[in-house]
Amino acid sequence: MNATNLPATSRMRRPRATQEPAWVRWTLIGLALAFLTLFLFVPLILVFYEALKKGADVYFAAIIEPDALSAIRLTLTVAAIAVPLNLIFGIAAAWAIAKFEFRGKSLLITLIDLPFSVSPVVSGLIYVLIFGLQGWLGPWLAEHDIQVIFAVSGIVLATVFVTVPFIARELIPLMQAQGTEEEEAAVALGANGWQTFSRVTLPNIKWGLLYGTILCNARAMGEFGAVSVVSGHIRGSTNTLPLHVEILYNEYNFAAAFAVASLLALLALVTLALKTVVESRITQHKENANEHRGA
């Protein structure tokens, strides 16, 4: 009991034998903070500063302007399609990989991670090679008057590609660590497949699922390179928010570019905040689970 009553600081403090002298400590902290300030915090602050530099009127005008609104709509639409698709994929892949033993499993995990190591530009290009006018399906698509490249479906495809791994790679280690005993117990007690998944598995992975979804969504809304290749940059039609930022910037409309960019920066901050909250829930969940297993 005594130990738990002590304030956190005295429990956390490292003994002197393994502690650096104060001047070393503060020098290292100072260096780290200087680096982070220079490369992270200043750019972040600058986005909001530049966005609001010319006043709130200019700021809001840039955001409610029709092309901006259409870009917001498109970005939301793309995320609304890409994220659920990868959510279903992530659950299916994690179920197969974490709950069963089969050959070629590690190869499959590597394949799932593949999109992470492909340059965004190449991710867009490969869809042009298939669906573009000179692509494999190009002539057939043109005949049937279907447009994929320079259209919303191409943007969705490229976004799905770059966000494939996010949810699966969160769920796989989580579900592997949880093992299969609870599911086996459920089946032995008479539960069918859906009951086992929805009542036992899903509640156990909900935080990991949410975590992966948040990251997946952030990337889906923020993707630039891949989308840039397949979009065609048609204002008011195939422009997502990041592409809209680029157009405004290239037109030297800096205030508007930063105004729209600030929306995306806000999205990033919300993502980080949610991520931090969910992370602490996951840690807590894990501690409970460890307690659950041990003793």
């Binding site: 982070l36 972040l44 923020g222 980080l272 905040a273």
Partner: peptide
């Protein structure tokens, strides 16, 4: 928490911010 900012911030935003 902010260390992950480059993961979360769309690259285009980072690009124009660093340029400015």
């Amino acid at each position: 928490a902010l260390v992950d900012l480059p993961f979360a911030l769309p690259t285009a935003v980072a690009g124009i911010a660093l340029t400015a």
